[in-house]
């Protein structure tokens, strides 16, 4: 028998996880529905505010939709795959993380598999659908680079959020009750990226848009796709840099994670 690939093993662990969850069918259906509703509400909120002044940050409906949909697609995809890794703190508190470290697989990979929540698939599908619609209605001068960029960018955005989820969860190795702090950047990041970055002001805008890189999830990519200049004056070539920023974020998160695992103090007996 050929040796099974690493991916196959993870798939099996994942399937086992889904089978365990499927035992609670009714609440699964309800949560699937409710999470889609929440996602829809997030987008609806953007447009409720849009309707007040007939624009957001000087952008029209099509650009705003593109940004909000890109943010939703990125976040929901990340949330589907990694949104529950912050359960690490529960695993650490109960000492369950030990058993992940005792298996011949990557601890992070296993953590992803055991915290995977299928109910979030609804949100991801909704987000990606909305993004497709937004691309169709947006005023984009299609060419090959833009097409490739449009395909890649929800996934780089998702990878960016994944890095945040991992980094946020890693804090639990030192500070178990840190959950809410991570929320400020994950859920806060989702809210931040749903709106054009030029709506924010002062140091807060610079810190989140450029310093932490949230501008590269939806705002700059949307500008790159529609070919619009940035009202904040960030040069045009930088709008295309989302994949690079994401790569940097992933590297940082990976290094941080490894550092965290080395500092794991297995509690309890």
């Amino acid at each position: 028998m050929a040796e099974p690939g690493r991916l196959t093993i993870y798939t099996r662990v994942l399937r086992a996880q889904i089978r365990s969850q499927a035992q609670y069918r009714l609440s699964f259906a309800f949560e699937l529905f409710a999470s889609m509703l929440t996602n829809a509400l997030d987008i609806a909120t953007v447009f409720v505010l849009f309707s007040v002044g007939g624009g957001l940050g000087g952008f029209g409906a099509r650009e705003v939709l593109l940004m909000a949909a890109l943010s939703a697609a990125s976040f929901a995809t990340a949330d589907l795959t990694m949104g529950n890794v912050d359960n690490l703190r529960v695993y650490i508190r109960r000492g369950v993380f030990d058993s992940l470290l005792l298996r011949p697989l990557s601890a992070l990979g296993q953590l992803m598999a055991v915290t995977f929540a299928l109910r979030r698939v609804g949100r991801a599908v909704l987000g990606l659908t909305l993004y497709t619609v937004a691309l169709c209605v947006a005023d984009i001068d299609w060419d090959i680079p833009r097409l490739l960029f449009a395909i890649v960018v929800p996934f780089t955005g998702a990878a960016f959020f994944c890095s945040l989820f991992v980094a946020g969860a890693t804090v639990a190795f030192w500070w178990i009750e840190s959950g809410e702090v991570a929320n400020a950047f994950t859920y806060g990041g989702r809210d931040f990226t749903s709106y054009p970055s030029n709506m924010y002001g002062g140091w807060f805008r610079d810190l989140f848009t450029l310093g932490l890189g949230f501008g590269f999830v939806a705002y700059f990519p949307a500008l790159a796709l529609t070919g619009q200049p940035d009202p904040l004056g960030v040069p045009g070539w930088l709008h295309w840099c989302s994949p690079l920023v994401t790569l940097a974020a992933m590297c940082l998160a990976a290094v941080f994670w490894r550092f965290g695992v080395r500092h794991y103090r297995s509690t309890g007996s």
Partner: peptide
């Protein structure tokens, strides 16, 4: 005081998963 088995799955399934993992 810790379990390395899958809580919601039958023992047999845990064993067959472990076969793949190892």
């Amino acid at each position: 005081q810790r379990s390395q088995l899958w809580w919601d799955l039958p023992l047999a399934e845990s064993f067959s998963l472990l076969r793949h993992i190892y």
